[in-house]
Design a protein around this nucleic acid. Structure first.
Length: 811
RNA sequence: GCGAGAGUGGCGGAACUGGCAGACGCGCGAGACUUAGGAUCUCGUGGGAAACCGUGGGGGUUCAAGUCCCUCCUCUCGCACCA
């Protein structure tokens, strides 16, 4: 494609201008409203940016430029989530230090971003691997530790004996190590764990405060997984102690016909009868050997073993056989259940397999065919205590639940309980390339490092191979490991785990506000000015973990007074995935990866930006089309020719004359549409309207400045390089990025004439054009005439008139 | 299985609180300018000869349905024995 202008030269020119002008530098200005516009910062991988990254970055860039022109003080920063596994794996293979790889990759990403013309305030750039940054990551950890929110536990990890190392989930394929295909087993290991469960309630409730996609809210809700029910005590028969179970259906307590413990449950030994010990032990061993994955996959056939023991149902004194089965999980609730096969699908399936009794206590279904689990209908039956003193018979399940819960509570047999699916957060990796924990082990006890000693620097090494013991490569560094406790002078050993990649990304949005502060994580005055993030755009793959972890840390920081808002991210949007031209997911193996550098080379950054936004709705998954890029390139070329003559001078068609009324209306309609669409992130329809405008203007041989100049401003956030150049060609000093956003006059948007479609029996038969001030009578009269033959000369049975919309005759 | 979202021309996609379905772009067709055009500009382009038919299928409400209701089908994403 030959272009009417040299996009390469113009882009380089204006990128250099913005750089030396520091056009996009943000500073606090209490006089102006702020807008914090944030991208999820990337992991700087070796393969560079792809067109999928660019979609989200372009969107936030357009919004940032738009908001600046609207008079907002915009904070639009970028940084690097640069700790992580790939650089470390590369180091193990090649010996190249992760810091070197990381720096190279960052340089590539930054070069590519600048080439796209993204208007970041690069003076706030940060990297999670920078000691000046991770000092505060460590500081936050100390605060968590102080508040009892960080603790040590023995947690099973993916241990690969052949490699003598712990593997991340993503390093395991089909239960084997990705490298070498060796077996992986579960092995308990000392780990740091964060007590996110202590915040479960608030993490759930405060979802009401944010403007997020419904699907993401739903995912977070499900992940937290609150369920309300009751814990009930069952005394053991013939043994000391009692079995505590959790149920959401205490209304079905009279229908319990057996009990199930998770195989790992601590009471298994106590309940197991001597003659069942061998069988029980064998089942427990088998369950322990299964990975979580295997336990889940064997979903269909439930297995279990009778322990020989019994527990007593507190409502009727019945002795219930106690089983163990791996369909009950130790990690949820109390690790024990009462089984009500008539009203629980899992219990029903289990009872069928082992011929256990099924007793109906909610009528309304046929429990001989399947479990009846609905709570919305049905009536409680067979649920009266043997002495007749208490009954929930005849109630709806919803009414029976509080009644029986209160009764249990009054007798000390149970209480209302809320349970969460959310588990505490395993916060340790056996890796080198991560934040070291500011923790010393003194006489077997974890002691926090004093704040003044932060950052605890990641020690230098040339050996990135795992220690072999399952500990991180840091365990090889004897000199670093051995230290003394500053408080007591006793010998101490440093913690060898490092933090997971999530750590640095949990709070980076706060550091952008005050990236150079050496005294505080963030200055409170600045924090109050900029927070919360007004718009946060990133992939939906982070819908749960990153966003939940960041919210958790934010709430802790809120509790200790570091931040002023309960939630960090006000509005969240996920950009959709960009597919290859073949409608398949982009991948090297398919050979359908689109290289943004090549696209920018051919069509220019403006065209690529514009196409990214024109493809379709931001959130939608959609295929790339290089033809489509050509299409928007043609549009930009037309915009250029509208203003500039072939020899590069201002076109003689550009005149000072006033636009016509129709032209002015088109302009105001366009300003309105683009403004409103940008507020709603509907970039594709905004561009479409600008195309309509351009098509109209192309037809004119005299093009009034009063039309062209506001239009250049409208297009500027989308195609900033082109518009800076056109603004200059139009005789203005730089730069367009500092111009105010055009306003529209609602009175000038509406037309003085309307085209009214005329329907007969709902079918379109004709159209008339009428002045806007005509009365209904005038319009209908004219419409009747226009409908002519379709009315067959008879008066219509009914006339529907929708003002300025349509006329419909019913005959 | 459960939860959430989505099905509109050859393709990507428009369509406000029910009111002209297919804006805009791609592709395709015709023409203009040209030594030439894979450049540019102009016009046309849902299907059908037409009556008419058309927003995943079927049914309903309404003067009027892509939009509301019922039902079924397909696809995408998430969760997956959570008691």
């Amino acid at each position: 494609m030959s272009r009417p202008y040299d996009h390469q030269a113009i882009e380089a020119k204006w990128q250099a201008y913005w750089e030396q002008d520091r056009t996009f530098r943000a500073s606090e200005d209490p006089a102006r409203p702020k807008f914090y516009c944030l991208d999820m910062f990337p992991y700087p991988s070796g393969s560079g940016l792809h067109v999928g990254h660019l979609e989200g970055y372009t969107a936030t860039d357009i919004v940032s430029r738009f908001k600046r022109m609207q008079g907002f003080n915009v904070l639009h920063p970028m940084g690097w989530d640069a700790f992580g596994l790939p650089a470390e794996q590369y180091a193990v293979k090649t010996g190249v230090h992760p810091a070197i790889t990381t720096a190279e990759n960052i340089a590539t990403f930054k070069r590519q971003m600048k080439r796209v013309g993204l208007s970041y305030d690069w003076e706030r750039e940060l990297s999670t691997t920078d000691p000046g940054y991770y000092r505060w990551t460590q500081w936050i950890f100390l605060k968590l530790f102080e508040r009892g929110l960080a603790y040590v536990a023995e947690v099973p990890v993916n241990w690969c004996p052949a490699l003598s190392t712990v593997l991340a989930n993503e390093e395991i394929v089909d239960g084997k190590s990705e490298v070498g295909g060796f077996d992986v087993v579960r092995k308990p290991m000392r780990q740091w764990v964060l007590k996110i469960t202590a915040y479960a309630e608030r993490l759930l409730d405060d979802l009401a405060l944010v403007d997020w996609p419904a699907s993401t809210l739903e995912m977070q809700k499900n992940w937290i997984g609150r369920s309300i029910g009751a814990e009930v005590e069952f005394e053991l028969a013939g043994a000391r102690g009692s079995l505590r179970i959790f149920t959401t259906r205490p209304d079905t307590l009279f229908g319990a016909t057996y009990m199930v413990l998770a195989p790992e449950h601590p009471l298994v030994d106590a309940v197991t009868a001597p003659d069942r010990r061998d069988e029980v032990a064998a089942y427990r061993d088998a369950a322990a050997r299964k990975s979580d994955l295997q336990r889940q996959e064997l979903e269909k056939d439930k297995t279990g073993v009778f322990t020989g023991g019994h527990a007593i149902n507190p409502v009727n004194g019945e002795q219930l056989p106690v089983w163990i089965a791996d369909y009950v999980m130790m990690s949820y609730g109390t690790g024990a259940i009462m089984a009500v096969p008539a009203h629980d699908e899992r219990d029903w399936a289990f009872a069928r397999t082992y011929r256990l009794p099924i007793r109906e206590v909610i009528s309304g279904g046929d429990v001989s065919k399947e479990a009846f689990v609905e709570t919305g209908r049905g009536t409680v039956v067979n649920s009266t205590t043997p002495d007749g003193s208490f009954s929930i018979d005849g109630l709806a399940p919803g009414d029976a639940i509080p009644k029986i819960t209160a009764w249990l509570e009054s007798r000390g047999k149970g209480k209302k309980t809320i349970n969460y699916k959310l588990r505490d957060w395993l916060f340790a990796r056996q890796r080198y390339w991560g934040e070291p924990f500011p923790i010393l082990w003194v006489e077997g006890e974890a002691k926090p490092l004093p704040e003044e000693q932060l950052p605890l620097m990641l020690p230098e090494t040339k050996n990135f191979k795992p220690s072999g013991s399952g500990e991180s490569p840091l365990a090889n560094l004897d000199v670093w490991l051995a230290t003394t406790d500053p408080a007591t002078g006793k010998p101490a050993r440093r913690e060898t785990n490092t933090m997971p990649q999530w750590a640095g990304s949990c709070w980076y949005y706060l550091r952008f506000i005050d990236p150079k502060n050496s005294r505080q994580l963030v200055d409170p005055v600045r924090e109050r000015y900029w927070m919360p993030v007004d718009l946060y755009i990133g992939g939906s793959e982070h819908a749960v973990l990153h966003l939940l972890y960041a919210r958790f840390w934010h709430k802790v920081l809120y509790d200790i007074g570091v931040v002023s808002t309960p939630e960090p991210f006000k509005k969240l949007v996920h950009q959709g995935i960009v597919l290859g031209e073949d409608n398949q997911k982009m991948s090297k193996s398919r050979g359908n990866v689109v290289n943004p550098d090549e696209m920018i080379e051919r069509f220019g950054a403006d065209a690529v930006r514009l196409y990214e936004m024109f493809m379709g709705p931001l959130e939608a998954m959609k295929p790339w089309s290089t033809r489509g890029v050509e299409g928007v390139t043609r549009f930009l070329d037309r915009v250029w020719r509208l203003t500039v003559h072939d020899d590069g001078s201002l076109s003689r068609a550009v005149v000072a004359a006033d636009p016509s009324a129709d032209q002015r209306r088109l302009l105001h309609q366009t300003v309105k549409k683009v403004t409103e669409d940008l507020e709603e992130l509907r970039f594709n329809t905004a561009i479409s309207q600008m195309m309509v405008f351009t098509n109209e203007l192309t037809k004119l041989d005299r093009r009034p400045r009063a039309l062209l100049e506001p239009f250049v401003l409208l297009l500027a956030p989308f195609a900033p390089h082109l518009c800076e150049e056109l603004w200059e060609k139009l005789g203005h000093a730089p730069c367009v990025s500092r111009q105010p956003w055009p306003a529209f006059d609602p009175a000038l948007v509406v037309s003085d004439r309307f085209e009214i479609p005329i329907q007969v029996n709902g079918k379109l038969r004709s159209k008339i054009e009428v002045p806007a001030d005509w009365t209904e009578e005038q319009v209908v009269t004219s419409a009747t005439e226009a409908a002519g033959d379709w009315l067959q000369g008879k008066p219509p049975r009914k006339v529907i008139y929708v003002a300025k919309r349509l006329v419909n005759f019913v005959v």
